Simulated assay, not measured.
Amino acid sequence: MSRPSSFTPPSCARARTLSTRRGRFAVLDGGPTGTPRGTVLLLPGYTGSKEDFISLLEPFAEAGYRALAVDGRGQYETEGPDTPEAYAQGELAADVLAQAEAIGTPVHLLGHSLGGQIARAAVLLDRGPFLSLTLMSSGPARVAPAQRERVRMLSDALATWTMEQVWEVMRTMETPEETPVDGADLRRRWLRTRPAQLITTGRQLSVEPDRVDELAAVQPLPKHVLSGERDDTWPIPLLDAMAERLKAHRSVIEGAQHSPNTDRPLETAAALTGFWDGHC
């Protein structure tokens, strides 16, 4: 489970609702005091939320960028139905296109992990709203075997237990980590996430085909593959090879693992804004 540094946005950002033709989405909207040099749309990963990007919002604003981090449908503070069909990848990708449309200006699109595969699907539907695409710790196809097993176990548990029961089991299984986040915040986020969303998107992560060649054919669109120096969800050599196939800019954040946005936020923000500066 992702562990954001805080659930309280910095002074440069505010929590609000983004109204779109496909519904309302909870977002954190941050930016500089003056006219931004660009706008960024941030999609969180599996079991995550918009708060996973909190530590990036201030350095983004300092670099002149407005950033909107979004809870997708069924994630944390965005409502979602209990039917699996609502979380099909095509539906989630269409939501991203509606979000970009509602923002009202072309955006740099970034997706972390599952969010990267949703971002890819959105670009393959319509490249028009996007200035660039960054895949953060998000690989070319399905996740590694150990992660598929973890997803299977979680999906089986969610099919028979309540979210509260699953939370209690997860607490006993996870290794304690140093984090400033109150466990109550993580618990609240977990309990507000829809089980159907987790089950359906977990299956997507386990069966996703390789669509790198399709994405490489989307031109012109600057592409960026960013990761930590270690990753147990998609091995680093796999991400390196994907970047080569995409002819993408490649960033590796030293000292970070699967979530460079929370592991090394300042270094991650610098790599991202440096890439965007070249494609404003």
Rank of each mutant, 00 (worst) to 15 (best):
A15H: 05
P140G: 07
D182C: 13
Q117V: 12
L43R: 06
S155K: 08
P145D: 01
R203C: 03
R37F: 04
Q257H: 15
T233G: 00
R189K: 13
R142Y: 04
L56E: 04
A146W: 00
C280S: 06
S2Y: 09
E62V: 03
R230H: 11
L43N: 02
T17V: 13
V27Q: 05
A100Q: 06
H258F: 08
C280G: 13
P180V: 03
R3Y: 14
R73H: 08
A184S: 15
Y76C: 12
R245P: 07
E214V: 03
L226M: 14
L57S: 00
S206R: 08
A86Q: 01
A61Y: 03
A122E: 10
E101A: 11
R21C: 10
H249F: 01
E229S: 15
H108K: 13
Q197F: 14
L114D: 03
A100P: 07
D231F: 00
L133A: 07
S155W: 07
E149L: 03
G104C: 03
L246V: 02
E164H: 05
G48T: 06
L221M: 07
L133M: 02
L198G: 07
Q89D: 06
D182Q: 14
A241Y: 12
T134E: 03
T179H: 14
L114I: 08
A26C: 02
L43H: 08
R194Y: 10
G31D: 13
P81L: 09
M153G: 13
M163Q: 14
A146Q: 12
G31A: 10
G255F: 02
L43K: 03
L68E: 10
R194E: 14
Y46M: 04
V207M: 05
H249M: 01
E91M: 12
V143T: 15
G202F: 00
F275K: 04
P10A: 00
Y76K: 06
C12F: 08
A141R: 01
R230K: 13
A269D: 08
F7I: 12
S19I: 05
G64S: 09
G111P: 10
L57A: 00
E208I: 00
G115I: 01
R203T: 10
T47C: 00
R245H: 09
I54E: 02
V166G: 01
L215S: 11
H108A: 07
M173F: 11
S19K: 15
P180C: 12
A121L: 04
P32V: 10
T172C: 05
D71T: 10
D263R: 00
S11E: 15
D277T: 08
G128M: 09
M153R: 13
V212Y: 00
G45L: 01
M163G: 12
S227R: 08
L154S: 05
G255W: 02
A69F: 09
R3I: 08
A63F: 04
